[in-house]
Each structure stands twice: as C-alpha cells, then as structure tokens.
Design a binder for these strands. Structure first.
Lengths: 217, 217
DNA sequence: CAAGAATTCAAACGATCGTATGATTCAAAC
DNA sequence: GTTTGAATCATACGATCGTTTGAATTCTTG
C-alpha cells in the first residue's frame, strides 16, 4: 500500500476537482474520499498546486502522444485530409470510456473547464503540456488548407478549441434550448460524427467580404 | 453617495471575478478595490452569492433584450437569413466597447468562463436568464435551416455556444499555436466577420454518413 | 434645527483552509 | 530480532474567509 495512496489521492482529487472546481475543493474533502490521511497529500505531492499539476500531467501526456501517433500515421498513409486530421486530434479525448478508464471522462471535463476558465499560472502549465502537439497539428492544417491565410487559420483554430473545450467540459447546455439533455453522451462515436463535419465546414468556410453591411438601425 | 456604493461594489467585483474567479476573490479584496467598507456588501446585497447574481442580472438583461429586438427587426424586414440571425445573437455581446462601457468587456469574459466552468447553482441561475432568448433563436434557426434534423440542430447549437462562450471568455488560446496573440481584440467588427462565416458554415455542414470508416490500427 | 431612517464604520466571531510537526506504525535488510 | 528508512497518523498552527454586530455617521424629512 505504498503508491496505492498516491493513486487514490489522484483519483479522488480528479473527481472532486471536476465537480466543484479547484478552489472549492479542500484537501480534507479529497483525503476523506480517498480514505487516506490529510497529510498524505503534502507528503506525496508537496502541495495542493503540485497535486493539480500531477493530475494534468498524468492524463494529458498519453493523450497527446496518441494524437501525435495518429497524425504521423496519417502522414505515412498519405491521407492527411482535413477530416482525418480533426479526428486524430479529437478522438483521443473521447474514446476513453470504452478503454475501461472511467476516470478519464471526468478528467476531460476538468480539462475543458480549465481551458476556458483558469486565469492563473495553471493555464500556462497546461499550455506547456500542449505546445508540441498543437504545433504539429497547426502545420498539418496549414498543408490541408493551403488557400487559407495564416491569420484566418489562427482565428479558426481558436474557434475550434472553443468547440472542443466546451464539448469536453460537458456543461449540459443543450437543455437551454429545449428540455432535452445531451442524449447518451456515452456514445462517443456519434459525437465524433457530429463534431467533425461541423468543424471541417467551419474551417473550410469562404472568407467574409472585407466590408460588411451595416448593422440594424 | 447612497447607491454609488452599490455601483462601486458591482464594478470592483466584476473586475476581480473576471480576473481570478469567484471563490478566489474575497469580499475584502472587492471592498478594498471599491473603496468601501467590508460590511457594505452584505448590507446592500445580502451575501456574496447574491452579489454574484446581481452582477449577471445587471449585465445580461439589456444584452438579451437587444438580442430579441434585433431578431424581431429581422423578422419584420423578412431577411432572417442564417448570417443575420447569428449576428443578432452575437453582436450584442461584442459591440460593447465602443459604447463607453469598458466594464462590459470584462463581464463577457466572466460570462464565458461561467458558462463553461460553473458547476453549481450559479449556472442554473444564468441559464434562467437565458431561457427566453435561446428559445426565440432556436425557433429562428429552425426556420432558417428547415432541412436540418432537430437533434442535429441541437448538437450544432451546443457547438455554437462553445465557440461563443470560449471567444467571450477571451482565454488567449491563440498563442498556443504560434507566438502571436489575439490581434487587437478591440476590433469587434473584425471578430464578427470571422466568427459568423465559421459558425454559419458549421451549421450548414452536410450530415455525416451514418457509418464511418474505422479509426487507426 | 431636531428627529428618525438610512448608511457606513471598526471590530470581532466562528468556520475552514493549506501546511507543518513530531510521534507512531510498518516493511524490508542485515 | 534488531535496525533503518519510508509511510501514515493525530494534532495543531497561522491565515483567511463570509458574515454579524452595534455604535457612529450621514442623509432625509418635517
């Protein structure tokens, strides 16, 4: 029961952080859920902040490695079309449930919310974990969309990150429109089939004319 | 100097909440920035939670009224095409800076982050402020995209909310891809010219085939 | 100007937080 | 079986939090 404690803390913290946020989750709540002593967090991780970083590093590293592996496989096969690139980027964040890691679903929710919300040094830390992957995908998209100006591509990548982060965050926004909730979010394949056409069409959208008609009176 | 205090508190709280989040912003920091006494918050608003709600109500109500007014004007003119509907929904959240209300920019950032991140009762409260507006725009989009199945429209509205919220949140995601930051986010007209074609193309995207090719080995 | 309501103020309360401490338990090495 | 270092434990510290209180002040109204 040596590094079992570490794992139990990571598991409990991940769940509570995803549900209540970082600052509203106390170390006491984490250690109580994990069934370990309060001091175990500072013993194994050093501080609450270091625990948060450990959570992101553990989950994000394999996901990003899979992203790069998928992208490289596409390049080898010569079929790096836009839809395939998008799938290589998004699928590793969605297919986790069937891989018997239910905790990863909670983590993606946590990651999405952190992306949109975190203002402090944590976002910079997460960005650091992303840097290599995003540079590779940016280059792939430049080649897949050669006619798109670089600045426009950057904006559309910003929009893309918005869609992906928001979907990962899993806020049940759909019931804003009607009474229907997200239908069985467990069906990740169906989600991919809806996300990728939406994003591909947005990335391929024709450029807006330089001048726009005036707004309403 | 009676309800000037109320206003100073709202202003300071809005700025600090947008920068550091709700739970990491103390009432002492708010009242210090506002130059008022600590007890003034509980005297004028009742509690920290009620202060947060007051912030959202104050800003969101006029924005949503303008959204509905723009949409109704489109209907009267018979030009409720997709792009115009999107502009009616998005423009009121972006044009605020030139209206001499710099605080509204900070608020939209706060709103975007709350949309993606808040898990507690606050999100339900904000959703309540949105309900009427989103029902109206959903109906307009149903008419503008008659060939799109209702379920698919719901998903794409979810994606749309992701883009809008993420853009409002204003997290400087673009420097993930290169070293360039968001170029002069003050130019709201340019942002509209980029957002609307992206979203319109996504909403109009052809449906994906029911079966997809398998993923990578 | 005086009376009463509205507002502001300094100060404190109880609770909770992250972290640190020193004793205690446990497991492997000799 | 003894020793040694890692791990766990109960406990406490100092800080900060949201909220409350009651007196002091300001404003309104007659």
């Amino acid at each position: 029961m040596q590094d079992d404690t570490r794992e139990r803390i990571l598991e409990a913290a991940e769940a509570l952080f995803a549900e209540h946020g970082f600052s509203r989750t106390s170390l006491r709540a984490i250690t109580a859920r994990a069934g370990v002593n309060l001091a175990a967090v500072n013993y194994h991780f050093g501080s609450k902040h270091a625990l948060i970083q450990a959570i992101f590093t553990r989950r994000l590293e394999p996901i990003n490695q899979e992203r790069l592996a998928r992208l490289e496989a596409l390049r080898r096969q010569g079929r790096a079309d836009l839809e395939a690139i998008l799938e290589a980027f998004i699928a590793p964040t969605l297919k986790s449930e069937k891989d018997h890691h239910p905790g990863e679903v909670r983590f993606m929710r946590l990651l999405g919310r952190t992306h949109a919300g975190a203002a402090d040094a944590l976002r910079d830390f997460v960005h650091g974990l992303y840097a290599e992957v995003l540079a590779a995908f940016e280059q792939a998209l430049v080649e897949a969309l050669p006619e798109l100006p670089r600045l426009e591509l950057h904006w559309r990548l910003h929009f893309l990150m918005g869609v992906v982060s928001f979907t990962m965050a899993g806020t049940d926004t759909m019931r804003l429109f009607t009474d229907c909730h997200l239908p069985e979010a467990g069906d990740r394949e169906a989600l991919l089939r809806r996300l990728i056409p939406f994003l591909a069409a947005g990335l391929r959208a024709p450029l807006a004319p330089t001048e726009r008609r005036p707004s309403l009176p």
